[in-house]
């Protein structure tokens, strides 16, 4: 019985890890390239979730298609946000950079509250895949979808960074912006590109949120807090570290919730104990490098 519980807990952790990895890798890409932590990243996820929800509930758009549309919409919004004001704070002091995306986050959360009330909603879509039975352990179909799409997003991002010309330029702009300028790279374009990719992954992740969690204005805050912990674990700016961080964090969370009495109420407290501990032991994260602090 104990082993079944353990296996169930770990398998569910694995599926949420797919979602966490997709969200955190977008965040860490944006940071790695521009040096800005996008505190509004979670709100893009939240908007993606609402979009997928409304597309399904009012127009009957299948969730997978809705997710894709949400991704595209968030890419467009990211473009608007970057060219509208984020590009202007790139050269400002860090407190202004922090404040800029926090301001955006507050704005989006409260607009969502005014438009859709703070109440939680559930998308009543039938499961996209049949549940998986492994002995006594059951993994719900939607959790499988979350795992698959999350991993696909993450893998797609890794592929883009490693095997395309744009990805190469992105890495150059991240590693050494001055050198990139000397090499004739349009750094601002690369910065924008990182935000577009971040917006795309956030929007699609939002669709995943709609599949397995409640859709509500504050859902992004919860998720982005965990993404911070993952990114701190994996190293700010390291996409590779994000997956490991995501698996570690969701395993830690699920095990706490399953085996510690009352551990379910710890929420992202687990995440934060991890953040503080990791940063104290290794200020650049477990897999991060010193170059951008």
């Amino acid at each position: 019985m104990e082993t079944t519980l353990l296996a169930q807990s770990l398998l569910l952790a694995l599926t949420t890890a797919g979602l966490y990895a997709a969200i955190a890798s977008g965040l860490t890409l944006e940071f790695g390239v521009t040096g800005i932590i996008n505190f509004a990243h979670g709100e893009f996820v939240m908007l993606g979730a609402f979009l997928t929800y409304f597309l399904y509930e009012t127009a009957g758009v299948p969730p997978l298609a809705g997710m894709l549309l949400a991704g595209l919409a968030m890419t467009a919004l990211s473009w608007l946000v970057f060219d509208g004001f984020l590009s202007r704070v790139l050269k400002q002091d860090e407190h202004n950079q922090i404040l800029a995306t926090i301001g955006l986050s507050i704005l989006l959360i409260n607009l969502a509250m005014i438009a859709w009330t703070p109440d939680a909603r559930v998308m009543h879509a039938p499961p996209l895949l049949p549940a998986l039975h492994l002995g006594d352990v059951i993994v719900p179909g939607n959790n499988l979808v979350v795992l698959l799409v999350g991993i696909a997003l993450y893998a797609g991002m890794i592929w883009f960074m490693r095997h395309t010309r744009q990805g190469l330029l992105l890495r150059l702009a991240a590693d050494d912006p001055q050198l990139a300028v000397l090499a004739g790279v349009d750094v601002t374009r690369m910065f924008r590109l990182s935000f577009l990719i971040g917006g795309l992954t956030a929007g699609v992740s939002g669709g995943l949120v709609a599949l397995i969690l409640y859709v509500q204005p504050l859902v992004g805050v919860d998720l982005v807090m965990r993404a911070f912990a993952i990114v701190a674990l994996g190293g700010l700016g390291s996409i590779g570290g994000a997956l490991i961080g995501a698996v570690l964090l969701s395993a830690a969370e699920n095990l706490t919730a399953t085996f510690v009495p009352g551990g379910g109420s710890w929420g992202y407290g687990v995440a934060f104990v991890i953040i503080v501990l990791v940063l104290v032991v290794r200020p650049t994260g477990l897999f991060g490098s010193e170059r951008r602090a």
């Binding site: 922090i98 990114v231 701190a232 009352g262 407290g269 503080v276 200020p283 650049t284 602090a293």
Partner: peptide, 28 residues
């Protein structure tokens, strides 16, 4: 002392983490 060596964004995230952990501590 804990955050002495942390620079810029790392410092911001660590302090944010501290504040949120305190809230959890109260509930626990």
């Amino acid at each position: 002392l804990l955050t002495l060596r942390l620079r810029r964004m790392y410092f911001a995230i660590a302090t944010l983490g501290f504040a949120l952990s305190m809230q959890v501590l109260v509930v626990v």
